[in-house]
């Protein structure tokens, strides 16, 4: 214990004694109880009023305390049971799947399958290929479709990109190389357009299939980039494409060459 703290404690002890004595001495300066009672007699009505107030306050605070305890217990039980349930692999998968689907329904645009034949008819996701690649760019194909266990469908990636970067990002003269990402997922459920798509999209078609295209800006490392998004699909697949520094016409041509 350092010296300062010890001195402080000594002072506290001294003050305890001194204030104790002061309280006793102060009491002696008051008139006697009889004199005070005669001068200021307690009022019976006021007394009852304070007792009633006490009763009311006690009830409210007791009810509040009970409710607070119940709420804490319920929260603990919910947390504990949720944690126990989440230990189960199937439950975890179901919960994750629900969350994914919720996000999916919000973000993805579902297209009407239509009545006519589609270029995708009779094809599996592994059969798909890209026929058109803009000049100067190359196609990187994921080759095999992957299966998402949680969501229960297959998906496939294609990337069309510039084979060489100009300079490192952030350095003077850097230009982000052009690229297009193509994500194809199996299946399509018609649920209409999302709010986001309605707000900024323009309707078009890809080989007769309903499509939405929209241009938007996004910021990266302090720079603004223009990007184009194209979404379309039929009863078999839903296709999501996003291109940067690639014209809308080229993106549409790439989409039409998919089959």
């Amino acid at each position: 214990m350092n010296r300062k703290k010890k001195k402080d404690e000594e002072l506290d002890i001294l003050l305890e004694k001194a204030f104790g004595e002061y309280v006793l001495s102060e009491d002696e300066t008051f008139p006697s109880d009889e004199e005070l009672r005669e001068a200021f007699p307690p009022n019976e009505e006021d007394c009852l009023k304070y007792v009633r107030l006490m009763k009311k306050k006690k009830r409210v605070s007791a009810v509040f305390k009970v409710l607070r305890r119940v709420a804490v217990i319920v929260l603990i039980l919910i947390s504990a049971s949720s944690a126990a349930l989440m230990l189960n692999k199937n439950v975890r998968a179901a919960v994750t799947g629900t969350v994914y689907r919720f996000v999916d329904d919000y973000v993805w645009v579902r297209f009407s399958p239509g009545s006519g034949n589609s270029v995708f008819d009779g094809k599996t996701i592994s059969d798909l290929s890209v026929g058109y690649v803009p000049e100067g760019l190359i196609l990187c194909d994921s080759a095999d479709a992957e299966y998402d266990e949680t969501l229960g469908y297959q998906f496939r990636f294609f990337v069309i990109c510039d084979p060489a970067d100009v300079t490192a990002p952030g350095e003077p003269g850097y230009t982000r190389p052009p690229f297009v990402i193509i994500y194809v997922r199996e299946g399509n459920q018609e649920t209409g357009y999302s709010d986001e798509a309605l707000a900024i999209s323009k309707e078009t078609t890809v080989n007769g299939m309903a499509a939405l295209m929209f241009d938007f800006f996004f910021e990266s490392e302090g720079e603004q980039y223009e990007s184009t998004r194209l979404e379309f699909g039929d009863k078999n697949f839903t296709v999501y494409m996003q291109g940067m520094n690639v014209s809308g016409e080229d993106i549409l041509k790439i989409a039409e060459s998919l089959g």
Partner: peptide, 30 residues
């Protein structure tokens, strides 16, 4: 049980408030 606990606690506090008022109202007023 909660009701009885509530009432019991209530009674002692009520008594204390009544005691304080009856006993110390004159000095507080002074």
């Amino acid at each position: 049980i909660a009701f009885f606990t509530l009432t019991a606690g209530d009674r002692s506090d009520k008594e204390l408030i009544e005691y304080i008022y009856r006993q110390y109202y004159p000095i507080m007023r002074y």
